[in-house]
Write a protein that binds this DNA or RNA. Structure first.
Lengths: 205, 205
DNA sequence: TAGATTGTTAATCGATTAACAATC
DNA sequence: TAGATTGTTAATCGATTAACAATC
């Protein structure tokens, strides 16, 4: 156990462990080892043990880790032992795909509001949700206490929407717009840009 | 300049520089400095200079970098001074969103084939492309010499599809399925899993 | 020339790995 | 008990930063 600040790079690996453990649990396994988990996620056993041990002694010598127990612990550490309400801004193709994505709710997230600034789209429905006007976003986010948002607007709109989100108290933004966002450092941003990810691979071709 | 192997972590930052420089060029700027570029992307000036200098001396003391020149160099290094034909496997909501995404072609990519194993979907069109049967994928990929693929199939199908892609000569896979893939180490994989990205932020909330 | 900014070196900082005592 | 595997330490490895001569 370690009371000091945990490096960001370790936090970044925990969701990957969580996902692999969940799959193991789903396939009926009860225990695993750092060795076995490492093979699943492509990370050394030593590193997995070191990462996990930052948060407590969750394993047993000789037998490894109880999958159910480690799952519980990791979910609590990552604060996904609950469901976070998430706002989606930008009701284009990507926004539609995310609303219909089935993979959020059992990973700790639930899209509960959709915003767009296109008056044509406002009032329409995506599944059971009505697209709302971005103008009313700040008020709606504040009154619902939303802390997490996904941004699927065009690049040129992204910074100003991000500013509004921050202003409304959002602390975590998953940004699909192809631009680096400027936010206060108590606000976290994660970037998803398929072209960037592809360009990270073409170098090696 | 440096003939040794460039660390992966440096390659990973180049597309971010490229995207920022492109935006600067689009807004009419002609030159920039490591300082200014660093402010745009949130990386220190020293690191940007060090990263760029791995590949040559592209700047000028006193005046900085010519944006057009540095763009050309970075595109050549990342091999996106051309258009890569890309195959998409999985014609669900995410697949549809990617096919319609306008952001690929001026970043070096072009989706040219779409596959699905659902006989209901095979033969239908997404925009101008006809969804093809996964059974015919290997042959189609080989004859077209496709090296890059995007995977938007369900988790339980992802590994077997990845195996087929590798078998057919694909060397770079952008994986949207929420699972770690096992591939030979001459094949690159990049992962996009929105739940993972969100879970990297909830820890800090 | 004077000011600005690069490319590079050395120093610092941080992350990963190897090894093993502890112990289930 | 014997075998397996953890948690942790020390050693290694790699990445970032600070500083500055070179030079545009």
């Amino acid at each position: 156990m370690n009371a000091e600040k945990i490096p960001d790079i370790i936090i970044g690996r925990l969701p990957v462990y969580l996902r692999a453990l969940q799959r193991m649990a789903d396939s009926g396994l009860k225990t695993t080892s750092s060795q076995e988990l490492g093979e699943h996620v492509g990370i050394s056993a030593a590193q997995i043990r070191k990462d996990i041990s930052q948060f407590g002694e969750f394993g047993k010598q000789g037998t490894g880790y109880s999958i159910a127990y480690l799952l519980d612990k990791l979910k609590a550490i990552l604060k996904v032992d609950r469901i976070w309400d998430v706002a989606l801004v930008g009701a284009g193709d990507m926004g539609h795909a995310l609303v219909r994505y089935q993979g959020f709710v059992n990973r700790g997230f639930h899209i509960c509001m959709i915003f767009d600034n296109d008056k044509e789209k406002v009032g329409r429905k995506i599944d059971s949700f009505t697209i709302e006007d971005t103008e009313k976003m700040a008020e709606r986010l504040k009154s619902a206490g939303i802390k997490v948002a996904m941004l699927t607007v065009p690049a040129q709109a992204a910074q100003s929407v991000a500013d509004k989100l921050v202003q409304a108290g959002v602390k975590a933004i998953l940004n699909y717009a192809p631009i680096s966002l400027n936010v206060p450092n108590n606000v976290k941003v994660q970037y998803i840009d398929p072209s960037i990810h592809l360009q990270r691979m073409t170098y090696y071709l």
